[in-house]
């Protein structure tokens, strides 16, 4: 059998800047909409609750959360902090827009986090892709999911 003809999963590497140190891998959950902490998530389930949010009802617990960043109340960090205490925090955060809310939120959620990537993670990564975040190395390695 000629292995070269067998479809290999496509792998892409993005380079970026460490926000919070560490390495994590998991399934990507991608949204192009910013997320509210206070009033936007249920901190006991890790679920987005904001009305009219495209991810309403979806849990980010254990996922590699790929999103533009934070919006809304200054309670953002406190609510993501609570997801960690409740064991429903995301496995890692990849985001595009730096603010004090997302920086502090990522720090207290204590998961690997990365930003300033050389390609737009919101278009390169799709929900269901397998993603390895190595924040110390500043790399995000994306293995595309098999086409359905």
């Amino acid at each position: 059998m000629d292995i070269s003809t067998e479809a290999k999963p496509e792998t892409i590497e993005l380079k970026g800047r460490k926000v919070v140190a560490g390495r994590a891998e998991g399934e990507a959950l991608v949204t192009t909409e910013t997320i509210s902490g206070w009033g936007g998530i249920n901190e006991r389930t890790g679920t987005v609750i904001e009305r009219r949010h495209e991810m309403r009802g979806v849990s980010f617990a254990g996922k590699i959360l790929v999103f533009p960043g934070a919006k809304g109340s200054s309670g953002w960090s406190a609510y993501f902090h609570m997801t960690r205490l409740n064991g429903v925090q995301p496995a890692a955060m990849i985001f595009t827009r730096m603010t004090t809310k997302i920086a502090l939120g990522a720090v207290v959620t204590r998961v690997p986090a990365i930003t300033e990537l050389d390609q737009d993670p919101l278009s390169v990564i799709e929900t269901g892709d397998w993603v390895v975040v190595d924040a110390d190395a500043g790399t995000v390695t994306v293995t595309k999911k098999k086409p359905a």
Partner: peptide
Amino acid sequence: TNVEGKES
């Protein structure tokens, strides 16, 4: 000031 949080 920036928008600070509970921890900062």
